[in-house]
């Protein structure tokens, strides 16, 4: 029995690197961050590592020009992270800049989780070459071994741990109340009546039309999902569990988006990492090389 992505090729690592930094590039390029400067500065709190930014610099950053500048630099760094000679320093700089972006938007209201697994994936990909270099320096006589699989396994581990942390927390702290039909109904109603950026219809507004047993089924579904969340790290070593996990969690994310307007699209994209894509990547690479030789 092997772990998912154990022994994966360098080509797979390049594909994942391209995917992760490419997603961040698309996000930042599409996001009009500078518009946040139109809101009062007091609306933004410095959360977590953002408190390391001096108050004066924080005030200076709260302007359309500064936020536009940061956005442009971030886009350039992310572009350079995709490949080429400068990819390692560019990836490290990108991580700092996207942490700033994520910290800025989380300074309002609530520190939520949507983009964090993708952020952690970027950290792992950016830091791994540094760790490899440090390891080589520490033991220069050791035979160099290609361990392109390590960051891939670690990303999957961290990704599945985020689910497990959520599931275990719900089971330990809020069982059985969290699985009461009225609890689930309340969450759906509270979220369904909030404005949304995605679409204009909300399934959740009709939850009261369901009979009580129907809402009981929703609560039972939440219990099932919570158990799968808690067991998520099993995706690392069990192919059968991975398949069932995807069959349960992907529709759950879609249902949560339709009923509560909470869309974890980054997680949906990261579900691709739960597929064993290395053979496909290797075969494509081999085909490309064969064509090149001809």
């Amino acid at each position: 029995m092997k772990l998912l992505h154990e022994g994966a090729s360098a080509a797979s690592l390049r594909v994942v690197r391209f995917g992760v930094f490419g997603l961040w590039l698309a996000k930042i390029a599409d996001d009009p961050t500078q518009r946040l400067a139109e809101l009062p500065a007091w609306f933004f709190e410095r959360v977590g590592v953002m408190s390391l930014i001096p108050a004066g610099a924080w005030r200076a950053l709260h302007s359309v020009a500064a936020l536009t500048g940061v956005r442009i630099v971030t886009v350039v760094c992310l572009l350079l992270s995709l490949g080429g000679r400068w990819r390692t320093p560019a990836a490290l700089a990108s991580c700092l800049l996207i942490t700033f972006h994520e910290g800025l938007v989380r300074g309002v209201g609530h520190v939520n989780h949507n983009e964090l697994p993708l952020l952690y994936a970027a950290y792992i990909l950016a830091l791994f070459p540094v760790v490899e270099a440090l390891g080589r320096r520490a033991s220069p006589d050791a035979r160099p071994v290609d361990r392109s699989d390590v960051p891939l396994v670690l990303i999957v581990a961290v990704f599945t741990f985020t689910y497990a942390l959520t599931g275990v927390s719900r089971l330990v702290l809020w069982t059985p109340g969290a699985f009461h039909p009225n609890t689930v109904t309340t969450w759906i109603l509270l979220n369904a009546y909030q404005p949304t950026a995605y679409y204009t219809w909300q399934l959740g507004r009709h939850v009261m039309e369901l009979p009580y047993w129907g809402r009981g089924v929703l609560a039972g579904g939440l219990l099932l999902v919570t158990v799968f969340e808690a067991l998520a790290p099993c995706c690392l070593f069990s192919r059968r569990f991975r398949r069932v996990f995807l069959l349960v969690m992907a529709p759950t994310h879609v249902l949560v988006a339709l009923s509560m307007n909470i869309l974890f699209w980054e997680n949906l994209a990261m579900f691709l990492l739960l597929l064993d894509f290395d053979p496909v990547v290797c075969s494509i690479q081999a085909r490309i090389e064969r064509r090149r030789v001809r």
Binding site: G48, E102, G103, V111, W174, N182, T183, Q194
Partner: peptide, 28 residues
């Protein structure tokens, strides 16, 4: 309280308990 530790945060979602449906207020 995730505000102190970002980007490392506690992973707690959908963790309140409401055994009775209560009226609520929202804003437009």
């Amino acid at each position: 309280r995730p505000k102190r530790t970002f980007p490392l945060v506690p992973w707690r979602m959908f963790g309140s308990v409401d055994r009775t449906l209560q009226p609520f207020t929202f804003f437009e």
